[in-house]
């Protein structure tokens, strides 16, 4: 097991290296330079700035310099914010995004699973139809519509919660709910489909033939067997939510990473683009490792043999 994890960690490093290389060169193909918008600068001034950031060097040299710094944990200095380290900027911005993402995933998964289970247990009943309806609604209506409605009714009309900004925990409630709608819908749909399939399998009949009651059949025998596909879809979704969602962060004026990322792309702020891409890539790879380990926890057939 330990050996397996170490092996996976080594692969992670290789993957990260490849992603860094690929992103670096792709970025160089972006049209324009970081100075495109700065036409007020004279030719000489521009040359000085380009020189300062090493942008006059041949691309392979730039790449080599970047990678050398990266290995030492230095993501460089942002172009837009004078003399501010990319690491510091990302650190400042990732907090709110992570918090929203984790909260939304947590709430979304739990509510989604419960809805899906209800659907499966009361298959083709009223509860099934209503929860399937909710799930379809949640998946088809974009989150910013919910965000707007929540702001209007709960924020403005009722005045229960702040409409926007980021000044305390209560400010995270509305954006969390808006973000959670999608995972709720996804989890509910997957849970329902899987659970229905599992409930039709032979070992469920075996369990019923033992005299196990409905609750035991669903939770002790069905649930665990229905989890694998759900985890597969929820992992990447979690990364997406944690690394910021541009729309929701904009609507609620949350100082998150998503907003920052888009701004950086528009400004050709290479170090920030690189830094954020690497962060997202890292989270993805990490979550995939966690998912692979979770598979083993849930399903003994996937578990690695001892000592392997």
């Amino acid at each position: 097991m330990t050996r397996y994890i170490i092996q996976r960690l080594i692969y992670m490093v290789i993957t990260m290296f490849l992603i860094a290389t690929l992103t670096f060169f792709l970025m160089k193909f972006l049209p324009g330079t970081p100075l495109s918008a700065a036409d007020k600068l004279s030719e000489e001034q521009q040359a000085v700035v380009l020189e300062k950031y090493g942008l006059n060097d041949p691309v392979p040299v730039q790449y080599f310099n970047y990678m050398t710094n990266l290995v030492q944990g230095d993501l460089g200095i942002s172009f837009q914010f004078d003399n501010r380290e990319v690491t510091t900027i990302i650190m400042e911005r990732i907090g709110p995004s992570m918090q929203l993402g984790v909260q939304a995933m947590f709430i979304g998964t739990i509510i989604g699973i419960l809805l899906g289970l209800t659907s499966a247990i009361y298959h083709n009943g009223m509860l099934d139809y209503s929860s399937t309806f909710l799930a379809v609604l949640g998946q088809s209506i974009p989150s910013f519509v919910f965000a707007g409605l929540l702001q209007f009714f709960i924020g403005v009309k009722l005045g229960w919660l702040p409409v926007a900004l980021w000044e305390g925990w209560e400010y995270s409630i509305l954006p969390t709910i808006s973000l959670a709608i999608f995972p709720i819908a996804i989890a509910a749909r997957f849970m329902r489909t899987e659970m229905l399939e599992v409930m039709g399998s032979d070992y469920i009949v075996t369990a019923r033939a033992k005299g196990v009651n409905k609750f035991g059949v669903v939770f002790k025998h069905g649930f665990r067997n229905a989890l694998i596909p759900l985890i597969t879809v929820l992992g990447p979704l979690a990364v997406g939510l944690m690394t910021g969602t541009l729309v929701i962060e904009n609507i609620f004026a949350v100082p998150g990473i998503g907003e920052q990322f888009v701004k950086a792309i528009n400004m050709n702020d290479f170090p920030i683009i690189m830094g954020t891409t690497l962060l997202i890539a890292f989270l993805f790879i990490f979550i995939i490792l966690v998912i692979d380990l979770l598979y083993g926890v849930i399903d003994p057939r996937i578990r690695l043999a001892e000592g392997e």
């Binding site: 070992y203 075996t206 033939a209 033992k210 005299g211 196990v212 067997n225």
Partner: peptide, 28 residues
């Protein structure tokens, strides 16, 4: 009803199924 049957199943009447590859819970 279902509740009464649960007390019969497995205790007074029990069943052996056809396909042992699918009739056991794989995660238990």
């Amino acid at each position: 009803n279902e509740k009464q049957m649960q007390r019969i199943r497995g205790k007074e009447i029990s069943m052996i199924f056809q396909d042992p590859m699918t009739s056991l819970n794989p995660t238990m």
